[in-house]
Design a protein around this nucleic acid. Structure first.
Lengths: 335, 335
DNA sequence: CTCTCCGTTTGTATCGATAAAAAGCTGCCA
DNA sequence: TGGCAGCTTTTTATCGATACAAACGGAGAG
């Protein structure tokens, strides 16, 4: 594989001149540039990114750590982030954490290896006890909830407001006993707790009682667990006429469980989700949901990160951005 | 940020000894190892991957280029590949090509920048004219179809056989006018053409005529295009009682279009897909499909790639692996 | 005809880690 | 006590690109 030295020799110039040409520096005579480019072409020279990285101290790559890329929401997110990063001239390397605390911590420390210029992390498993890990000395942006401190950027969804709007929509469509399907409620600032809070607010605003029996908690936010949770709940009879699902993936599990029980949607039960993944519009019935503008969130996350990268350190203080949302009404709530 | 030199100084040893400790080399006295580890810990030392890469000539990262990570099949694939790569001690960097030829070519040349030790590429846009681009001098594994030459590894699905089995399944369930929804048929070895061939074989074996009107081709294999294609076809009346969809994503679009037209599945029309993505089991009706064992394919792709990486060059000759498949029968074919 | 000045080019040092080879050290045996 | 074998540790050189400063060369001024 040709090096910059080889090119220099072939073009009859010094390595520095080749470097200057490659990097588009001014003050290179056109004739020289020509000669160098011709040699680059002839030898099929490609810059060695490792060497450049070592010298410059930048890798040109950012890390993205998500629980599992194989979930519609994270796939959607990753696609947007890769596109946004490309606009900033950065590549994206993906780590899967399986939503496990130790893997999230490992991702944080990996980015300390200078493997990435910065890290975008979707925390799910870490808790307040890990606040120390967020006291980082390199650029980090947390995507999602469970933030607790440290000099990191933070991009969040409008969880409470959007959940309240989604639940209110069910109320407006005539639902009186509205269930919520969510993950475990730890009382912390995780996705389920925040969205649960919005759900409660909507109930209160409508003057509806908050029946604990209508809160279905699952081990994880997967289709399988959601379906299982709803089936168990229905074993005691259909006690609800509306369901707010904390994610669209959860909603898919719920729709399946309702279908298995012969419950018609939206006639008997109305269902609404959260995320507006691509599949939601094509389900039968199509799924009403909250659309959080993934592209904007991704763009902001990358922008917050590049700002921190450009200023060299982790960034001095905490920065936050909460995205907008839009209710998308479809068949599952009587569209 | 502390370097290996700083650690060496702090521990009162040479940099080499620190390196030996870090890399778990034998012949380091336990007491020394202790001292070094203590210093590493105290200074918060992390190895600089760029420097290591420069010296070793390996990056420890492989590239994965797919059309769009935000499609269930590619998400599923990426998840498996990331897991498989992790088992081989490798990280994965993802590029999105948007199924466009020039981006696929760019991915091939990027991997030449020594950014990756090797590349796994899902070709969709490239054609036989680009055979020259595959005459690579570094490790490459092509995933999927449209292979045409060059010293690359190749992992393929059992397209024809599985498509034939899927179509035969429809025949066995009593379908007599079976449609296929696929992408453009260029006559080349792309996914649509191969699966279309399997479909034709099954029809021939069953003594059914191959009616060109039953071939619905779409611009791209997305839910949107598939739904559009089926709607257009049905504008002239429902002329089929079974549909073989070349991917599950296509099937989702088809199911939606059928629902819009008030056609009942499987009573009036039976539908089968290909890929067995996670969502398929939860659709209503749940989708019969072909399960190609993604984990195995991913493991093989990574194994082919690491073999090529370990032997230094692109690898001498062409290697192929075609996975197994399994028919998964669910509600959409009368399960 | 010589001297500056400025645009261009080059030499040198360096980023941090590690392979390979050389040098130190121990302990053991003759 | 000398010498050797075998473990440990250090020295040296290098991976390839680039920042910086110094050197070069040609044009125009005096």
């Amino acid at each position: 594989m040709a090096t910059i030295q080889d090119v220099a020799k072939a073009a009859g110039v010094s390595a520095m001149t080749v470097s200057n040409v490659i990097n588009g520096h001014p003050n290179v005579r056109p004739a020289t540039r020509e000669r160098v480019l011709e040699a680059v072409d002839r030898l099929g020279y490609r810059v060695n990114v490792a060497a450049r990285t070592l010298r410059r101290g930048r890798t040109g790559t950012i890390g993205l750590a998500v629980p599992e890329i194989n979930r519609p929401y994270y796939g959607r997110l990753a696609a947007s982030i890769i596109a946004a990063a490309a606009r900033h001239g950065l590549r994206v390397s993906i780590e899967q954490t399986d939503a496990r605390r130790e893997n999230e911590l490992a991702a944080l420390s990996l980015s300390r290896n200078r493997l990435y210029d910065g890290l975008i992390l979707s925390t799910v498993g870490m808790g307040p006890a890990d606040v120390g890990a967020l006291d980082v000395d390199h650029p980090v942006v947390i995507l999602g909830e469970r933030i607790f401190g440290g000099p990191v950027g933070h991009v969040a969804m409008p969880n409470e407001a959007a959940s309240e709007a989604a639940t209110r929509h069910l109320v407006e469509r005539g639902c009186r006993r509205i269930a919520i399907v969510c993950g475990r409620l730890g009382g912390e600032a995780d996705v389920s707790s925040l969205r649960h809070a919005g759900y409660l607010r909507a109930l209160a605003a409508a003057g509806l009682p908050a029946d604990p029996e209508l809160v279905v908690t699952t081990e994880s936010l997967t289709m399988r667990e959601a379906a299982r949770g709803v089936r168990e709940r229905m074993a005691y009879g259909l006690g609800f006429d509306g369901v707010f699902c904390v994610t669209d993936t959860v909603a898919m599990g719920v729709l399946r469980a309702l279908a298995d029980a012969g419950v018609r949607v939206p006639e008997q039960v109305r269902v609404i989700g959260f995320d507006n993944v691509d599949e939601s519009a094509y389900l039968v019935p199509s799924l009403s949901t909250v659309d959080p503008d993934h592209d904007l969130m991704a763009e902001r996350a990358v922008a917050l990160l590049t700002a921190r990268i450009d200023q060299g350190g982790p960034g001095p203080e905490r920065e936050e951005f909460t995205g907008p949302f839009r209710l998308v009404v479809r068949e599952s709530t009587g569209g």
